Amino acid sequence: MSGPFSDLTETLFADKSVLSESYHPEEILERDEEIEEYRYALQDILFGRDPENVMLYGKAGLGKTAVTKYMTDALREEVASREEADDLFVHEVNCNGKTLFMVVRRLVNELLPEDASQFPKRGLGTGDAFDELYRQLDRLGGTHLIVFDEIDHLDDVNTLLYELPRARSNGHLETSRIGIIGISNNYTFRNSLSSKVKDTLMETEISFSPYDAGELRTILYDRADRAFVDGAYDKSAITMAAALAAQDMGNARQAIDLLRVGAEVAEKAGDTRVVDDHIENARTLVQRGRLRNRIRDQTQHAQYILETVAHLENRGQTPVRSKTIRANYEDVATSWASEPLTTLKSIQDHLAELHMLGFLRRTEKNHGLSGGHYYEYELDLEPGVVLETRETIEGEEQTV
């Protein structure tokens, strides 16, 4: 008796994982200049010297995390053969949605011996967590590179970036060294730091620019040769996926997603080759997925405000002023057991940012001396996508 899967005997994919977000290529293509800058920034580690701090800037999908993984893996391998180099430890923390205490606590728990009790979630403060972090770093000794991905989303980033680079000079560390690698999607992140933090960091800045269509073609041909069986794609489909991604954000992740989803569309249709039409059909599906990821990339309270406007949109109450948004936002934040922002100005700042990022439409109103000057806001995307994404995010948070 045949089952629902019995007719699935062929696939376009030789290794589909090559097109997944978790895939780390052995060779990084089209980022030679950035790799060279990175190499010089990290070279002191090979000679037992204090590592430089490094800040990477660029929008999502431009290779920052992939290049960092590639460089730290290569560095660890090289350190193992160098007598002058201390033992190297690399720690990775994603800062999105995290408090400073959560980030430091996670580092502490990663460093603790296996038989030690975890650092408590409650009862101790951030200062206690830093003290324990320093104890564990010195217990291990060596050089520690700490990679803070999405560092621009951390709530008290000034304290983190002031505390860690000065730990050795302030006498908190004796046998270990710390280097910071910060990864930010925000090109202007450094401008938000305090002057004393900027003076302390003395970091190397590496900016990742968008890929052009030619660079994306090179990346896609390399992935396609590994991902698909022979003869499973047209060259024109590669060219189209690269061109679409280059015209949009210059984003390698988007280009790879277009190729993967295009192949999935082809398989569902029973076709044996990915062609231009499959890439075009994949475009709508990928755009919807990218929108969900962009919502996830926003800070917690920016997401609450988006959710608020989505509810107002569904009730037919938009365009709407910031005062009304604030009143409804407080209910949304409270419903997720979060303390709302306290000032109208903070809400207006988030609204301005969400407008600039393309999530909201803003209409200027000016009624003269009697009515005043103000803005009204409405969503510039489907409210259903916002609400579905928010439900998913909160569901994931509750399972952590």
Rank of each mutant, 00 (worst) to 15 (best):
D7M: 13
A14V: 02
K16T: 11
V18E: 04
S20Y: 11
P25T: 04
E26D: 15
I28F: 07
L29F: 14
D32V: 11
E34F: 00
Q43C: 11
I45E: 01
L46P: 13
D50T: 13
D50H: 04
M55W: 05
L56N: 02
Y57G: 00
V67S: 04
E83C: 00
A85K: 00
V90E: 08
V90D: 06
N96K: 15
K98Y: 11
V104A: 08
R105H: 08
V108R: 04
E114T: 14
A116H: 14
S117I: 08
K121F: 11
G123Y: 09
E132N: 02
G141Q: 03
G142E: 00
L145R: 00
D149T: 09
L154I: 04
D156T: 13
V157M: 03
L161Y: 04
A167L: 02
R168V: 03
N170K: 15
E174T: 13
T175A: 11
N185F: 06
R190D: 09
N191F: 03
K196V: 13
T204R: 15
F208L: 05
S209C: 02
D225W: 02
F228E: 04
D230M: 05
K235P: 07
A241D: 06
V275P: 01
D276R: 15
L285I: 13
R288M: 12
R290H: 08
R294W: 00
I295F: 06
I305R: 06
V309G: 03
T318F: 06
T324R: 13
T324V: 13
V332N: 05
A337K: 13
L344T: 07
L344V: 05
H350I: 05
E353A: 09
H367I: 03
E376D: 10
Y377R: 05
V386P: 02
E391P: 00
